[in-house]
Every structure is written in structure tokens, then in C-alpha cells.
Design a protein around this nucleic acid. Sequence first.
DNA 1: TAACCACGCTAATCCGATTTAGCAACCGGC
DNA 2: GCCGGTTGCTAAATCGGATTAGCGTGGTTA
Lengths: 352, 352
Amino acid sequence: MSRRRVTMADVAKQAGVSPTTASLVLSGRARELRISRAVEQRVLEAAEQLAYRRNIVSVGLRTGTTRTIGFVSDTVATTRLAGDMIKGALEGARERGVMLFIGETEGEADLEQGLLQAMHDRRVDGIIFAAMFTRPMKVPAALLGGPAVLLNVVPKRSAALPSIVPDEVEAGRAAARILLDAGHREGIHVIGAGPRPRDVPPDALAGVERVTGIREVLAEAGVQLAGGRVCPDWLPEYGYEATMQLLATERPRALICLNDRIAFGAYQALDDHALKVPADVSVVSFDDHPLATWIRPKLTTIALPFYELGRKAVDVLFDVIERQREGEAAGDESHRVPMPVRIRESVAPPAA
Amino acid sequence: MSRRRVTMADVAKQAGVSPTTASLVLSGRARELRISRAVEQRVLEAAEQLAYRRNIVSVGLRTGTTRTIGFVSDTVATTRLAGDMIKGALEGARERGVMLFIGETEGEADLEQGLLQAMHDRRVDGIIFAAMFTRPMKVPAALLGGPAVLLNVVPKRSAALPSIVPDEVEAGRAAARILLDAGHREGIHVIGAGPRPRDVPPDALAGVERVTGIREVLAEAGVQLAGGRVCPDWLPEYGYEATMQLLATERPRALICLNDRIAFGAYQALDDHALKVPADVSVVSFDDHPLATWIRPKLTTIALPFYELGRKAVDVLFDVIERQREGEAAGDESHRVPMPVRIRESVAPPAA
DNA sequence: TAACCACGCTAATCCGATTTAGCAACCGGC
DNA sequence: GCCGGTTGCTAAATCGGATTAGCGTGGTTA
């Protein structure tokens, strides 16, 4: 901005051709529109010499595509993991030469409205509407205007938008299998939900699905869940409390904690009771929070694939953009991203 | 994008005035250019009825200001706290009706180059160049083109750019004072740096400054640092090792851990030696990682003010933009953001 | 009555590209 | 020698606003 940037007109002049020709060459349509090799070369060289760069704002005005997408989420800061989701989106975007706007709604409808407006005002090519925890939300009308995908969001009413979500049910199955494989048949407790199937924190879709998967696999193996305890929130302190209450009356052999922070609390409670992980009690968990490798013994956990979720969202969004350009309606298919198992040190066969 | 958006021409037609008049009214220059109240009203009403919204891309092309700023950092995902920095920037931007582009360099020069280009191509009004850990970096030339500020970055050579950094020296002083106030005079060890002043991880400017502050206050009080141990990286496992080594030969009364993850490792080591925090050993730390409130006893720590850093960066950036518009050169002043003390449960007077 | 001014609004140009329509020059065929 | 078709390039319109210069009207002033 110190001195005026070079424009296409400058390049054209330097190459001794019309702006039209310069545009044709620089947008790669030289062949198609029969520009001679010689002229093409001249333009290319001129552009090179002048270090010409297209003004994307101008292109945006003319063509309507800004090579920009919006990433709207309820919050980016709450968990470290959320950052990975953005990172994945960022890399997907970079590979396509697209930039990412981000915005937070804080869960407030008017902020959300304003943000979506602001993005449309800037003519984004598409929007990723994300939540940091999988949960049902109503899809804002402003989203339906252009290409958009839902990330970690399950629409309350079916919206004509694709969604990308982690495969929580399968994760639940995986967690259960880990314990079964280690030989556990009894004394398996859930911390964070239960004992009844519907006892999970409200809106915590992840919880519902994880438990579904767990019950399914255990049932298949003819194993009964010994019990479960809800936590008002999935934080260490509640994990601690729930586990303490459990230990007051029972002697569990394995704990399925609904996330790593709960597991951290559970570790503390087990420690208070002088119970060793995994010798006395095995622990499996979900999320793969950094914490999982910091605590001792390291936690076996089913990872939330945040990075992949972010990337996948960009992939699907570009699919939608493409399809929309060709006049097709957007689908509302739901993409399930697998949750990888991280085997570490917190599971062992039950003591004889 | 379903049907054509309404343009200013539509508004003008509906109000029965020229596009010029509509533009004048809608950009708030009606008074200045003597448009009658009646006409102004008509235009405003027409705009309202049609739900007109300015096309910012168009404005950007004409005026050169896109109401968009770029946030370029080495990484967003590494720490949970980094998210707070973005959150602060996001809110500052929102208050000004500005959107935020984000991008990651991963510390690679060519990505960095490409990102800055991409942002300039989109005519951002300014750029925040951030690192997630305070450290010296060379400032890319592409940054000097337009308004920019450095966030958490200390330029290797003085650049003509303002920088925003946490006040680490003062944080070091605060940490030392906490121990002195509790009555500690001896057996104070640093974990993460030392024993000599220059023994800190390379490029960890935070470490250097924290230790500077610590030494300063202790010296003033006539107290000698009992010792210190470097860690190859500031992670729990190294905190654990360093503390274990220390405990092999000494019996410390207080630990100043250079961050919370080190402190977490230190807790584990103290636990291994059956030493109680804070009865046997007091612990102070830095960062205020979420971990600090999860471990028991809760950690007294000097918080990294990520949120404020992000906000401040936006404030300063807009100062620069303003000044640049008026033809002034950008300053290169450095803004120190205070690090708040979080008193919790890990410090007690030394046992008699 | 002519010259001048203030008022209230508009025509025309511009920002930096893309895109459509079209214009010369050349070629071959009859 | 005329016609039609390529070939290779350009003029001009366009996107949606901001901005500058100016135009008609009515009232004042000399």
C-alpha cells in the first residue's frame, strides 16, 4: 500500500497488448481463446517482471466468487481440541487457495445473525456452521441462502444441508470392545451417564450415542453394565464426585468415562481409595484430550477426530459449491468421521 | 444467492432518486451534501423495505477498505489458550464491524509468505502477526506493506511495527512475591530454568523474563535462589523428571515452575516422594492453563492474558490504521499487557 | 434586469478485473 | 475476384457502489 499496486492494465501496457488479452492469458484461457504463444509469453513475462498479483476484490465483484469461506462456530476457545477443527479447515482451505473468515456466535442468536450477514455481505463462497460439541441446534435461515455445511451440528429439523459429525456410536462400541477384549465381563461402570439409557446431560448427543454403542456391544457379548452415574457437567470435579460415590458402595473392575476430563477426576478418586489403574480398575475414555497422555498411567481413549472433521467439512462444502454451481440442490447427507482408538496404559485384564 | 441480492440501484429506483443520492444517504453523508430530510427518509425507507445491504466487495474495490483484518499466527491449535487470543481479537473486531481472516504459518517461511500475499490480495485493512509463545522472530518483509502489529512476537531486528506482549518480567516478580509474602526465604527452586540466569530453553523469551523478575525481587529481599533445573521442553514429563532429580538430593520448600504443565509434572514427582503441596512444598507457576484448576490442590499461577492480548492487538492495529491514513509513520512501541495473579491453594507458609 | 449564490439533486467517471461481441487480416475455394 | 471461414486480438459493457463535477431552480443583490 506504500505505492500503488500493479494492475492488469500495467501488465497489458508493458506487454503491449490490450487488457482483454492480458486477462485472458492470466486467467489461463489463452488457449481456449486463441491467443498466440508469442503473445502469451510476453504477457506472462510482463506479469512476472512487475510481480503482478490479481486483485481478488475486483474479481469478486465481477465474478461473484471471492475465494473465501466462512467458519462460524459457537466458540473456538473452550477446548484445545476445537483449535484442531479450525486447523483442519484451514489446511483444507489453503490447499484450495481459499481464505477462512472465522466468527463466534457465543450461542447468541443475534450475534449469529449478524455474523452470517457480515459474511454474506463479503460474498463468501460458502459457510461452515460448526459447534464445538455435537448437539442438536436449529439451523439459522440465513444459512440457507448459499452453500453451507453443518459441522458437529445435528439439525433439529432436517435442513437441506449436509452435516459432518464424529461417529460416536462406533466409538462407544470400540470402548466396550477394548474392555471385553481385555477380558472384562463384570463390574463395568459408566461415569458421566446412566444407569438408565436416557440419563445423560441434556443436549449431549455425544453422550447418548457413546452409551448406545457401549450397550450394544456389551449386550451382544451378553455382558451386563454394572451401573452408571450422571455428571452435571463433564468436568474433572464431577468425575471425581461421581466416582467417589460409586466407590462408597461398590468395587468396580472397569470404568468407561464419557470423556477424558471425567476420567481425570476418576483417577483422583481411585487414588483416594488406593486403587491402582489398571491393576485394580481399568479405565477407558473418550476425546483424547492432551491430558490423556499427561496423567499416569496414560489413558486409553477414543479420540475425537477434530482435525479430520475440519478438513472434511471443507471437502464437503466444496462439493456443495460445485453442485450448486451446476444447479443441483444440496443434499442433506450426514458424514460420519471415524474416531480413532488410542490404546495406552489404563486397561488391563481384571485381577483374578 | 438464490435470487439476486438487492443493490443500491434497486433502492434508488424504489425511492425515486438517483443512485448517487441513495449512496449519499446510505453512507451517512446526506447532511454534508445537502440532501433534504424528505428524500433521505424516502431512501432510508426504501432500503429498509428491500432489506438492502451494502456489498462490501464493491465498496472494497472502490474505496480500498474491506473492513477485514488478517490474523496470522504460527499455530492456533497447540494450546487451548491460543484460542483465547483469537477470541479476544474476534471480539475486538466484531465491535468495529470488521471480519477476521485467520491463517497459520506452521513456522514455515513459504507458507507465511503465501498467507501474507493471500491477505494482501484480498486487501485486508491490516494484519496481526502473532506467535503463540513469545519469542524473537524475524519480521517478514511482506508485513511492512500495510498496517500491521506484532502479537506475542519480539522482532529480532527492530521493525517499525508496534508489538503487544505479556508483561513476563512483572509476572516473575509477582511469583517471587507470593512466596516471600508466605514467608519463604530458603529452599526456593526454579523448575524449567537455571541455575544460571541464561539456562533457559532457547527462544523461550518468556522463560528469560520470568526468571529475571524472580531474581530481581528475591535479590531485593536478600533471598537467594536455592537452585534451578532446565527442562528440554515445558511439558509434564520433563517437569516430572527435573523434580525427581531435584528431590534425589534436596528437600525444597518451594517450587517456582515456569509453567503449569511443568507444575503438573512436579506434582507427580512430589507425590511419588510423599510430599504434600502446600504443607511440605509450596508451588507457584505461570500460564493459568485449565489444568491449574483441575489438579489438587489447585495451582496458584500467574495467568497469561491471552484474551486481553488479542483484544489489545486489534486496538493497536486500528490505531496504526488510523495514523497511517493520516500519513503518520507507524510507531514501534511495545505494549506490555499485565499478567493477572491467580491465588489458589498451592502456596502456604513454610513448615516450622 | 442581469449577475450571483445557495440549494438539492444527478450524470458521469472510476476502482480492477471478466466477458461478450466484433473487427481486421489472411486463407482457400470456386 | 469475390465469398466465407479462420485466426488473433481488442473495444466496450459489466459488477455495485463512491466520488467529483456540474446542472437547474429560486432567491438576493447591485
